[in-house]
């Protein structure tokens, strides 16, 4: 049968459910092994952050679409967390292979990395299920609320510049993403590059300033040992 937009959407949802229905809500034994290999074990930081951001997500979701839909918000977040752990494991495996290192202490204790990775996973789930809701305010007034990107950045208080850093690695680490989802993530990238990363509170300006200062300094002699 011909692919209609509804059929495509249903297929994408079924595919995501198939992958995540059997996935863990908590770090797998492989992830735990990576955490145990770290100089500073990141487990508590990671699980506390998942809990805290979950509360923020569910509050904001219910506020946006109505308290009656809070359970749906909870289900969406749960799927996002499963995808987050799945992609994290895949990323670490490929980094281990590429760099031949087993200790990812700095990366796994970086709050901006985790916040951005989790935001990316939740964005994929939210986009899969659709992010536009019609809310009835009174019996005859309806309004549309939009939970699509960059909504998740505001909810998690993530800088677009940090979110941008994880997109490409996320796509590489999750080969089951549909073509439509990759296009969506690419559109998020473009919006960040063209607009959001240049807003007043972006860390990009400090980074550019630091880069300029480094370039302006006379060449430093090489350190004797590294």
């Amino acid at each position: 049968p011909p692919q209609t937009p509804v059929r495509t959407a249903m297929n994408t949802i079924q595919q995501l459910q198939m992958i995540l229905n059997t996935a863990d809500d908590k770090p797998s034994s492989t992830l735990e092994a990576y955490f145990n290999n770290c100089t500073v074990n990141p487990t508590n930081g990671i699980t506390n952050r998942v809990e805290y951001l979950g509360q923020k997500f569910q509050e904001n979701f219910a506020q946006a679409v109505g308290e009656g839909w809070a359970e749906i918000g909870s289900q969406r977040y749960k799927l996002g967390v499963r995808l987050y752990y799945r992609v994290m494991e895949s990323m670490l495996k490929s980094e281990e292979e590429r760099l031949s290192v087993h200790n990812f202490s700095k990366l796994l204790n970086d709050a901006t990395f985790h916040g951005s990775l989790l935001a990316c996973a939740v964005e994929v789930v939210m986009t899969t299920y659709g992010t536009t809701w019609n809310i009835t305010l009174t019996s005859d007034i309806q309004t549309e609320t939009d939970l699509s990107f960059p909504w998740i950045l505001r909810v998690f208080d993530i800088k677009a510049y940090e979110f941008y850093k994880v997109i490409e690695s996320f796509i590489k680490a999750e080969p089951t993403l549909s073509r439509e989802m990759i296009k969506h993530m690419e559109r998020c990238e473009h919006r960040i590059m063209e607009c959001i990363a240049w807003q007043m509170d972006s860390p990009l300006f400090d980074i550019l300033k630091q880069q300029k200062e480094q370039e302006d300094q006379p060449d430093q002699p090489e350190p004797t040992s590294t």
């Binding site: 990323m91 590429r98 990812f104 700095k106 990366l107 850093k165 490409e168 690695s169 990759i182």
Partner: peptide, 21 residues
């Protein structure tokens, strides 16, 4: 991935982007 433009250099990954190399 056919239409996606990859920005990372070859041999570069998430570790470099978060200054972990």
């Amino acid at each position: 991935f056919q239409d996606y433009h990859f920005g990372l250099d070859e041999g570069e990954g998430i570790s470099e982007l978060f200054d972990c190399d």
